[in-house]
Simulated scan of single mutants.
Amino acid sequence: MLRSYIRMVLFALGLMVAVQVPGFIKDYGQRIDAHRIEAAQALQGFKDTSGQFFKGDLNALVAHYRGSADPIFQRDADNIEHLLRRTQLFENEWKALQGGWAQRAWHMVTAPNAELLQETYANYRYQVVLEPEAIAWGLAGGLLLAWIAEVLMASVVALVGLGDNRHASRRHWS
Rank of each mutant, 00 (worst) to 15 (best):
M1L: 14
M1H: 10
L2D: 07
L2E: 06
R7N: 12
R7F: 13
M8V: 13
M8P: 01
M8T: 09
V9D: 07
V9S: 14
L10G: 09
F11L: 14
A12C: 15
A12V: 15
L13W: 06
G14V: 12
G14I: 06
G14K: 08
L15T: 03
P22R: 01
G23C: 03
K26A: 07
D27C: 03
D27H: 07
Y28V: 01
R31S: 10
R31L: 13
R31E: 11
R31W: 04
D33S: 13
A34L: 15
R36V: 00
I37Q: 10
I37L: 13
E38M: 04
A40H: 03
A40G: 14
Q41T: 06
A42E: 00
G45V: 01
F46C: 00
T49L: 06
G51E: 03
G51H: 02
G51I: 03
Q52Y: 05
H64Y: 08
Y65W: 02
R66G: 01
G67R: 08
D70C: 09
D70L: 12
F73Y: 12
F73L: 11
Q74P: 04
Q74E: 06
D76K: 04
A77W: 07
A77I: 05
D78R: 04
N79Y: 00
N79H: 04
I80Q: 00
I80Y: 00
L84T: 02
Q88G: 07
L89F: 03
E91A: 09
E93V: 06
W94C: 02
L97H: 06
G99Q: 08
G100L: 11
G100W: 07
W101Q: 09
W101M: 12
W101Y: 14
Q103R: 10
R104V: 07
W106D: 11
H107E: 07
H107D: 02
V109F: 14
V109N: 03
V109R: 10
P112Q: 05
P112V: 04
A114L: 10
T120A: 12
Y121P: 05
A122G: 09
Y124S: 04
R125H: 14
R125L: 09
Y126V: 14
Y126E: 05
V128N: 13
E133W: 04
W137K: 02
L139I: 15
L139C: 15
A140I: 13
A140D: 04
L144D: 02
L145T: 01
W147K: 10
I148C: 15
A149K: 10
V151M: 14
A154R: 14
S155D: 14
V156Q: 06
V157F: 11
A158E: 12
L159N: 10
G161M: 03
D164G: 00
N165W: 02
N165F: 04
R166E: 13
H167M: 07
A168K: 08
R170A: 06
R170T: 01
R171H: 08
H172S: 11
H172G: 07
W173Q: 09
W173C: 01
W173L: 12
